[in-house]
Design a protein around this nucleic acid. Structure first.
Lengths: 129, 129
DNA sequence: TCGATCCTAAACCTTCCGGTTGACAATCCC
DNA sequence: GGGATTGTCAACCGGAAGGTTTAGGATCGA
C-alpha cells in the first residue's frame, strides 16, 4: 500500500517543485558535481545554490562529500522511486482517461474504439448510468 | 525527452508536497467528492480545505462542477502521468543503487552478486581509481 | 606567504503558504 | 418565509521559501 502521510514524501515532492532543483538533479544524473558546477547554468548567487542543495539533501536526493574546499554532490535516486511508487498508484486513472479519449475520437470518426489488449483494463468504479 | 523547466510540473509537485492534498487525491481516487467530504478526515476549517482544493485545481489534478450549493470534485490524473514520466527518467539510477546493495550483501555473504540480466546496465561515469 | 577560489553563515527582504475567524451568498427544505 | 447547509471571500497572522548582500573560513597553488 502507498501511504499519503509520509513526511519523506513531503520533502521529496517539495524538493522537486522548483525548476532550479530539477535542473540540478538532471546535472547530477550525469555524474557528480560541485556546488559551483550546479549553479553554473542557473543565474543565481552561490548562497542561493547552496540553499537549494540543502533542500535536496533534506529530501535525501543528494549526498555531499567534502574534498578540500570543494563540496562534491552525488545523486541519491532512491527517494525518486518512492515518489514514483506514489504517483504510479494512480496509473489506472490516467489510463482510464486515455481510454475515454480513445472512445471520444473513435465516436467522432464513427468507428468503434480500439479494443484494449489482453490484460483487460477493468473499470473499477463504474459511473451510475 | 523530459523537460525540467516546465511550470506545470512546478504546480503538480507543489500540490503533491502537502499530506492533506495527497489524502484528498486518495479520496478522489475512489470517486467524486464534495468539498466537505474532502475535509472530513482532515481536522481543518472549511476555508482551509477550499484553499487546498484550489491548489489541486491549479495543478489540474482536480476539476470541479457546481451542483446547487455543493461543489463536486473529480480527480484528473493526467498530470500525475507527467510527474511519473519525470521521476521515472531516473529509474536506472535507483536500480543501479539496488545493484550496489546487492553486491554489498553478496560480498558480506562471501558469494558472487546476482548477475545482471541481458540488457547490461552500464556504469556511465566510472570513478577514477 | 599571499592572492584567488570554493563555499557557508548571517542578516535582511519580499512573497508565498497554511491556517484561522467572521461575514455573507446561495441553496435546500420544512 | 426562514432556518440549516454548503461553500467562498476577505482580512489577518506566523512562519517558511527563495532570493540578495556582506563577511569570513578554509584551502589551493604560485
Amino acid at each position: 500500500m502507498v501511504l499519503d502521510r509520509t513526511p519523506a514524501l513531503d520533502h521529496v515532492f517539495h524538493a522537486l517543485a522548483h525548476p532550479a532543483r530539477r535542473t540540478m538533479l538532471r546535472a547530477l544524473a550525469h555524474g557528480e558535481r560541485t556546488i559551483t558546477d550546479l549553479g553554473g547554468p542557473l543565474r543565481m548567487s552561490l548562497p542561493a545554490v547552496s540553499k537549494h542543495v540543502r533542500v535536496l539533501e533534506k529530501a535525501r536526493l543528494v549526498r555531499r562529500r567534502v574534498v578540500g574546499r570543494t563540496h562534491i554532490c552525488r545523486l541519491e535516486a532512491q527517494p525518486l522511486k518512492q515518489a514514483t511508487d506514489w504517483t504510479m498508484s494512480y496509473r489506472e486513472h490516467w489510463e482510464r482517461s486515455f481510454d475515454a479519449l480513445d472512445t471520444l475520437l473513435a465516436e467522432m470518426q464513427g468507428i468503434a474504439p480500439t479494443p484494449t489488449p489482453a490484460p483487460t483494463r477493468k473499470r473499477r468504479h463504474p459511473r451510475a448510468k
